[in-house]
Design a protein around this nucleic acid. Structure first.
Length: 428
RNA sequence: GUGGGCGUAGCUCAGCUGGUAGAGCCCCGGAUUGUGGAUCCGGUCGUCGUGGGUUCGAAUCCCAUCGUCCACCCCA
């Protein structure tokens, strides 16, 4: 044996025993998004590096040390996308989607960040996201939160908490930022190493510190929500009233900031305590300045993204995902004559019943081995075809999930018989 | 980038005061020549992560290295 090729760290395969949960989650999310009138947009996996630098922020960790960046053969610097909002905005500008128009969009797909992998954090991970463009008022903020809340409900997920905050306008945010820098600079001696670094890069993130020794200092710091501009305060109050009216519970968290530079006003996170250090399952916020910043016309915008791996973990942990459906029938041909007929029989059944799931035994083996495979396949029944059945144009239908006696079914009656099995079990 | 735990069969793991590698599950065959699930019998499967060192002898001790998991950081 030659040496096996190693996989890339933090870039995982999703194996067949997990894909049922993934598909269920993705299907459910798509249904929910479409039920609110959101339309899918498919975006490229890579963009010019400049796009991410200009949107996420030059001095963020994501851009400085977590992007997969390389020069293509023309010498252009490209990066695998670390998130999709920037691409979505870019695509909207490229195709004029924002000119006097409103857009409700969603996307799904892999993102890439060069981080040390740990629970709920991988170098290739998947997000689904929703973005709304051209809506300035708090009603769309409420709607986007309702979309996410409905998704948790449809998935049967309990225990997610919504944390909510407002960062204010970019002007009030930067005034607050100055206040905060002054406050922490005056207490520089008490700052831990991480916070000193953040003071230069992203002072708001000091408020997020997990270090208990920083707790007092953070608690005494100026509070963001007390320094909002009037319009942002009104916007936020109206959003809260709408959520109250819809029965959505939330926790105001004045320390909730976001790592990406483009957010303003509403920011929110759905958090869980089930995922170790990774508490955020879905988060987002308003980014009213981004479209203009990337060369489009001023366009208010807001969106969220959810981490598919994290949700899959929650859904699997709570055994919420339905069991994968096995085949309706497993066809067991016995003898050369039957083996040469089996695939043709299966083909004609699939023609007649498009929803039917048939697995035809391949690979030889004795009767016992074939029946064992039929059982392991999860099939509802086995269809046994040997010389006797060929001679009489019948098959033996054996029920594998119940104690019903096996039946001999004429070939001409097989299609309605299988259709009935499908409908009895709610399949197809 | 920093810190800690762990790397033995496809999977889960035992073996670690150095003596030449085991169990359960899975898989295959048989008991049951055309009938799965339960039971019983038999069988296949290992560069003991990699490289070096100590030793008559290393899965076991030492060093290095890689991988992986978790946490910091960052964030979905």
């Amino acid at each position: 044996m030659s040496q096996a090729v190693k996989p890339i760290r933090g870039i995982n395969d999703i194996l067949p025993d997990e894909t049922a949960a993934w598909q269920w989650l993705e299907d459910t999310a798509r249904d929910v998004l479409q039920s609110y009138g959101y339309e899918e947009i498919r975006l490229p996996l890579m963009e010019r590096t400049e796009l991410f630098a200009r949107s996420i922020g030059e001095v963020t960790d994501i851009v400085e040390k977590e992007m997969y960046t390389f020069d293509d053969r023309n010498g252009d610097s490209l990066s695998l996308r670390p998130e999709a909002t920037a691409s979505c905005v870019r695509a909207g500008i490229t195709h004029g989607l924002f000119h006097n128009q409103q857009q409700r969009l969603w996307y799904a797909g892999p993102m890439f960040r060069y981080e040390r992998p740990q629970k709920g954090r991988y170098r290739q991970f998947h997000q689904m996201g929703a973005e709304a463009f051209g809506f300035a008022g708090p009603d769309i903020d409420a709607e986007l939160i309702l979309v996410s809340a409905r998704l948790w409900k449809r998935l049967g997920l309990k225990g997610l908490e919504l944390e909510l905050n407002s960062l204010g306008s970019s002007e009030s945010r930067s005034r607050y930022r100055d206040l905060l820098v002054t406050y922490f600079n005056d207490r520089y001696q008490d700052l831990d190493e991480d916070s000193r670094r953040r003071l230069l890069q992203n002072p708001l993130r000091i408020l997020d510190s997990k270090n208990p020794e920083m707790a007092d200092l953070v608690a005494q710091a100026p509070v963001l929500t007390e320094h909002l501009d009037d319009e942002s305060a009104d916007h936020f109050a109206a959003l809260c009233a709408m959520l109250d009216a819809s029965g959505i519970a939330y926790k105001l968290n004045p320390r909730l900031v976001r790592g990406l530079d483009y957010y303003n006003r509403t920011v929110f996170e759905w958090v869980t305590d089930q995922l170790g250090a990774q508490s955020a399952v879905c988060s987002g916020g308003r980014y009213d300045g981004l479209v203009e910043q990337l060369g489009g016309r001023p366009t208010p915008a807001i969106g969220w993204a959810l981490g598919v791996e994290r949700l899959v973990e929650l859904v699997r942990g709570a055994s919420l995902a339905p069991d994968p459906a096995g085949p309706t029938a497993y066809i067991v041909p016995l003898g050369e004559a039957a083996e040469s007929r089996a695939q043709a029989l299966a083909e004609s059944l699939r023609d007649q019943l498009p929803g039917l799931r048939l697995r035809v035994h391949c690979g030889g083996g004795g009767m016992r081995a074939r029946m064992k495979r039929a059982d392991r396949s999860g099939a509802l029944c086995a269809l046994i075809i040997g010389d006797d059945e060929l001679a009489s144009s019948t098959v033996v239908l054996k029920h594998l999930r119940s104690q019903q006696d096996q039946e001999t079914v004429a070939l001409k009656d097989l299609q309605p018989r299988l259709a009935r099995i499908c409908s009895d079990t709610g399949a197809a």
